[in-house]
Simulated scan of single mutants.
Amino acid sequence: MAFHEVRFPTDISRGAQGGPKRKTTVVSLASGFEQRNSQWADSKRAYNAGYGLRSIDDIHAVITFFEERRGRLHGFRWKDFADFKSTSPGKAISATDQRLGTGDGAKKEFQLIKTYGSAFLPWIREIRKPVSGTVVVAVSGTVQNPGTAYTIDETTGVVTFAAAPAKNALITAGYEFDVPVRFDTDELLVTLDMLVAGDIPDIPIVEIRL
């Protein structure tokens, strides 16, 4: 299997249904209390692209994309319109959106991350698929020059500095990102109506961990 650095058609994913999923076991005790346990440290996103289809051309685009991915075999990029930036979707990206870490004078590589929440139990999500040309990085609030001060691996989300940031220097970044996913089916059931309309009611997409 492989990961194809190509994005699912965004005009279809824009209308899809889905979002984050967690796995929690809940045991009800005889006393009426509960015991709850999280089985996953990180959430996984799942979507259904069937809700985004609008035309016969959309159906053809999905079939073409599906066949090239060989069904569930190969991963690809997905734009989640509810969560695709280092900030909220309606705000502009800033180089200080997300804190990546603190310099120690030796470390050069920093993983892109996004932190959800702040007051109670923040969750840190590693961002593996930044969108080309959108990443901006700052060191202690000063925006850095891409290509000279640092490079970004757009297949892993790792920022590599030409020179290690100084000790206690705050490393921050802003960016757009995609979700690494795959099809969660090896079969597409297509319904056509007189070759001018139709649908594929179920096109399950599931996030993969890289």
Score class of each variant (00 low, 15 high):
Glu5Ser: 08
Asp193Phe: 13
Val206Cys: 10
Val26Cys: 00
Pro9Arg: 05
Gly141Ile: 15
Ala46Thr: 11
Lys114Arg: 14
Ser118Gly: 09
Leu195Phe: 12
Val27Ile: 15
Glu126Gln: 08
Ala61Thr: 11
Asp104Gln: 05
Arg54Cys: 11
Ala30Leu: 15
Asp11Phe: 10
Lys91Ile: 01
Asp104Ile: 10
Val136Trp: 04
Arg72Glu: 12
Ile93Asn: 01
Pro165Ala: 13
Asp202Met: 06
Thr156Val: 13
Lys79Asn: 05
Pro180Gly: 07
Ser118Pro: 00
Met194Trp: 07
Gly105Phe: 11
Asp57Asn: 11
Thr191Phe: 13
Val143Pro: 01
Phe65Ser: 02
Ala197Pro: 00
Asn145Tyr: 02
Arg125His: 11
Arg209Asn: 12
Ser38Lys: 09
Thr24Pro: 00
Ser13His: 06
Thr160Asn: 09
Ser140Val: 15
Thr87Leu: 03
Ile63Asp: 01
Leu73Val: 13
Leu53Asn: 05
Tyr47Val: 10
Glu5Tyr: 14
Thr134Ser: 14
Glu187Ser: 10
Ala166Trp: 12
Ala162Ser: 15
Ile56Leu: 08
Ala30His: 10
Val143Lys: 11
Pro201Ile: 01
Ile171Asp: 05
Gly105Met: 12
Glu34Arg: 13
Asp11Asn: 14
Arg14Asp: 14
Gly147Tyr: 03
Gln111Ala: 06
Ile127Glu: 05
Ala82Ile: 07
Val206Lys: 12
Ala197Asp: 13
Ile56Trp: 03
Arg22Trp: 08
Gly105Ala: 11
Ala16His: 04
Asp11Ala: 11
Gly15Phe: 05
Asp97Leu: 07
Ile63Cys: 04
Val135Lys: 01
